[in-house]
Design a protein around this nucleic acid. Structure first.
Length: 480
RNA sequence: GGCGGCAUAGCCAAGUGGUAAGGCAGCGGUCUGCAAAACCGCUAUACUCCGGUUCGAAUCCGGAUGCCGCCUCCA
């Protein structure tokens, strides 16, 4: 079975065949580091994290490049507002990005190049575009001439004449065509600047990606990803620059993830509904956020609501509870349930993932496996039997295997539930000593078969937001 | 004005022409002193509507309606 990927360029699902067998070269547009990361960034980063993990699991060597745009108008503006150096501002938000994404269990990209560290490569491409007649100068700025590039619009399906130029933005009268875009921007006094043949300035937004992808992945590479919003103009412009400069196809597969709405509304600064990752992490376990993000197909829009997150959380609780239960049932000398990448569930999972990385379907397989393991444990009368051990061990191992691709079950069930309780304690504190005392009192009542007393205590605890589970050995309590 | 997407049960969501995964919630049951958890069963005569292609369509084509996104910085 081969992997198929929906390609924005052709608007079709296509079998995935990398240029060099066994090796995948992938570039994903990273953030412009002028502010904290929100849930939308998380979606893109998590989606491509899972894609990378899956491709690697399927045996590909993946060179995954994700850039940081660390010089740009927004960075300069924000730095001026805060009266800090733009470089310091960028570095601060790069650190934040790493902190947030590490917390979300995202693996680092193979390379994370920064625009400011590739100025020579950027200047070189612009020079080349000038030589070939695709670019022109206008007092210190350099523009790309879209009419000089015949394929312009092929990614976004736009024709130049169909677009309402200047409908929303004033057109720079120095441009030959309203859709010409800046490759090199002359700096104003006090702004960060690099020397160039056209005078001191800084790179335009799009050119860095053309330069850095060529530097690390070559002039043609396999996968280019990013959020849907980047299709136009960013990726369209990248294609124009790279193909004009190098005279060969830029990217084979274009992959774009959908957006996140917040409570049915578009996330926007004006609505003030930006959900920052670090704020979300205050409330939810990182893997619940991942499970939420991966429960829909990566291209669909998804709606973030507290209810949706609670559902993801319930699901994650259920899966961790199964892992905990299975761990207790498995004999130490047999399988301990390490990740396994074969078997019926694994095959079904791969089948889903092969189909344009259908994580939603894959998660369905995960729950199927969990249910089957629970059933087996419910039904068995002799957990020591070899076939039982093998069966549970195999199922749990496959669950861990799927988790390995999705970035789930990275911690022990014990520590997961422990942090859940800590979290709940933070939200609705209870007096632990008092609860323990009541639980002990109820245990005594139960031993005396004083059910009325036991139930009264249970009700009392429930009012305190505490639920009880009477296990064989002892009673455990947890916060609701 | 141009381009694109989506419409599946109470909610979320998958579905790759052959007869509707999974999750959450709800109800019934098994288990339990009672619960909880887990499991079992039930919950879409059928996938917005109307046509068409086909032996056969949620899946393909045309049209209608309704949402949404992009065309400006944006994940």
């Amino acid at each position: 079975m081969s992997i198929s990927i929906y390609n924005t360029l052709t608007r079709k699902k296509e079998p995935f065949v990398p240029a060099e067998p066994g090796k995948v070269r992938m570039y994903v547009c990273g953030p412009t580091v002028y502010d904290s990361c929100h849930i939308g960034h998380a979606r893109s980063v998590v989606v491509f994290d899972v894609i990378t993990r899956y491709l690697r699991r399927r045996g590909f060597e993946v060179i995954y490049v994700r850039n940081f745009t660390d010089i740009d108008d927004k960075i300069i503006r924000r730095a001026a507002e805060l009266k800090v150096d733009p470089k310091d501002l960028a570095e601060r938000y790069i650190r934040e990005f790493h902190r947030d994404m590490d917390a979300l269990k995202v693996e680092r990209a193979t390379l994370e190049p920064k625009a400011t560290e590739h100025i020579p490569q950027i200047v070189q491409i612009i020079e080349r575009l000038m030589e070939k007649g695709y670019a022109y100068q206008a007092n210190g700025d350099v523009f790309f001439s879209v009419t000089a590039f015949p394929g312009y619009g092929k990614l976004s399906g736009r024709k130049l004449e169909d677009m309402e130029a200047g409908a929303r933005v004033e057109v720079d009268e120095r441009k030959r065509d309203p859709f010409d875009f800046v490759l090199w921007k002359a700096s104003k006094p006090g702004e960060p600047a690099w020397e160039s043949p056209w005078g001191p300035g800084r790179p335009g937004w799009h050119i860095e990606c053309s330069a850095m992808s060529a530097a690390y992945l070559g002039e043609t590479f396999d996968i280019h990803g990013g959020g849907k919003d980047l299709i136009f103009p960013h990726h369209e412009n990248e294609i124009a620059q790279s193909e004009a400069a190098f005279g060969r196809p830029f990217v084979t597969y274009w992959v774009h993830n959908g957006f996140i709405n917040i409570n049915h509304e578009k996330m926007s600064k004006s609505l003030g509904n930006f959900l920052l990752i670090r704020d979300l992490l205050e409330t939810y376990p990182p893997e619940a956020i991942r499970l939420f993000l991966l429960s829909s197909h990566y291209r669909s829009p998804i709606d973030f609501t507290p209810g949706q997150m609670e559902e993801a959380l319930s699901g994650l609780d259920k899966l961790y509870a199964l892992l905990q239960r299975a761990q207790a049932a498995l004999k130490p000398d047999t399988m301990k349930g390490e990740a396994m990448f074969s078997g019926a569930y694994w095959d079904r999972f791969c089948n889903a993932m092969d189909n344009d990385f259908n994580t939603a379907q894959g998660i369905g397989v995960l729950f199927d496996a969990a249910r089957s393991a629970n059933r087996l444990m419910d039904e068995t009368s002799d957990p020591g039997r070899d076939d039982f051990q093998r069966h549970i061990g195999g199922t749990v191992s496959q669950i861990r295997g799927m988790g390995d691709v999705l970035g789930l079950f990275t911690e022990s069930a014990e520590s997961y539930f422990e942090s859940r309780q800590v979290q709940l304690q933070k939200e609705k504190p209870v007096d632990t000593a008092a609860v323990e005392a009541l639980v002990a009192e109820r245990a005594a009542a139960r031993r005396a078969k004083d059910w009325a007393r036991a139930d009264a205590i249970r009700r009392h605890l429930e009012e305190m937001n505490v639920i009880l589970e009477d296990r064989q050995e002892k009673t455990i309590w947890k916060l609701k």
